[in-house]
Design a binder for these strands. Sequence first.
DNA 1: GAGGCTCCTAACCGATCGGTAAGTAATTCG
DNA 2: CGAATTACTTACCGATCGGTTAGGAGCCTC
Lengths: 202, 202
Amino acid sequence: MATRPSKSSKSSEARELTLTERARRSQLIEVTVELVADRGYADASLAGIAERAGITKAAVLYHFESKAALVRAAHEHVLAQLVAHVVAAIEAADADQAPAAYIRAMIGHLREHPRHTRMITEAMTNGEGVYDPAERWRPLADLLGAATRAVETKTDLERRTLAIIIGGAIDAIVSEQLADPDYDTAAAADQLVDLVYADRPA
Amino acid sequence: MATRPSKSSKSSEARELTLTERARRSQLIEVTVELVADRGYADASLAGIAERAGITKAAVLYHFESKAALVRAAHEHVLAQLVAHVVAAIEAADADQAPAAYIRAMIGHLREHPRHTRMITEAMTNGEGVYDPAERWRPLADLLGAATRAVETKTDLERRTLAIIIGGAIDAIVSEQLADPDYDTAAAADQLVDLVYADRPA
DNA sequence: GAGGCTCCTAACCGATCGGTAAGTAATTCG
DNA sequence: CGAATTACTTACCGATCGGTTAGGAGCCTC
């Protein structure tokens, strides 16, 4: 049979992973990120993932209950790293410099991990229900609300729109770098920060 | 047989389309736009298009030589309308107001044609080789170059980056409206215009 | 009224998809 | 030693994909 590893004799709840299982799982996640990034969400098949990992399709499904579960795990993996990096940068900055820190941390991280970037954008545009677009800019909008000193946006709507503008600009800068690796994203980040802080100077 | 309609006895080059053929083609293009917009590029199958049009798969391929050709035609259809609208708006504006006209025209058109919008973004992210991302912001960058009075961006790189920022912001504003139809894109367009024109006031 | 053209249907094709079933070496454990 | 568990492979499944083939109804023309 090829059912799941059950739970190693004990009938309790906690799933304790073996050493090899942990290794395979993380390898499969890595391979999935690579493949989704390189060939797109639709062309990242189980067969392709399996081949790249040196095992068969069935072996992949032995470790993950479905392709969707594998892709979800891979997505959570890259997203967690991004969030950790950005949160650390924000916490290290002064409150009024938080939006600037956000912009530079986002662009910096994505520049250094192009595959992660491709995976995230791929998951956002093609992932079934990975995370809902209505909440996408909420964290940034909240951040702008907290940084009242430097970025004086009055209404909630204006704050929301500014978050959307900044977020969209970051997306586009990152996409540009994926298309042209020579594009200077650090300079672009500076220019975006200037633009945001130049607004409402009074 | 079900080959192409050849060219109606005459062996010359010009393909003259029948009345019914013209009608079917435009119907199929409309249906394709609908389906791609509603269910995404990957889930818009020939069978689905055919069913929605009330004919069979084979009949669709009788009018278009492949699914790719049909999608290409649909894409060109929606893109042509967008370009016509934006160009008209720019030509009607003063030179230094051209970027503002661009922003408002883009956002306005996309607001009024949400299906076209979805189709275009879908084609950009999932379309095989519809149009290359390296050239995407070129027209806007050129426009900024021409409007030297209001938007004083010095170097080519800064102009390029500003175009990317504006373009990305427009994308995000439009996406937000697709997720929340109550979102006030006209106000967002005004805010984006203000931000762009507030830059480098000296 | 026979032939030719347009516009379509029904049936089929090979490829590929995610997923399942059955069996089996290798390791661990009583 | 023998039983159980882990970590796989080979072979298969039904569904769906884009595309092809053969044929036929309806019209138009000589």
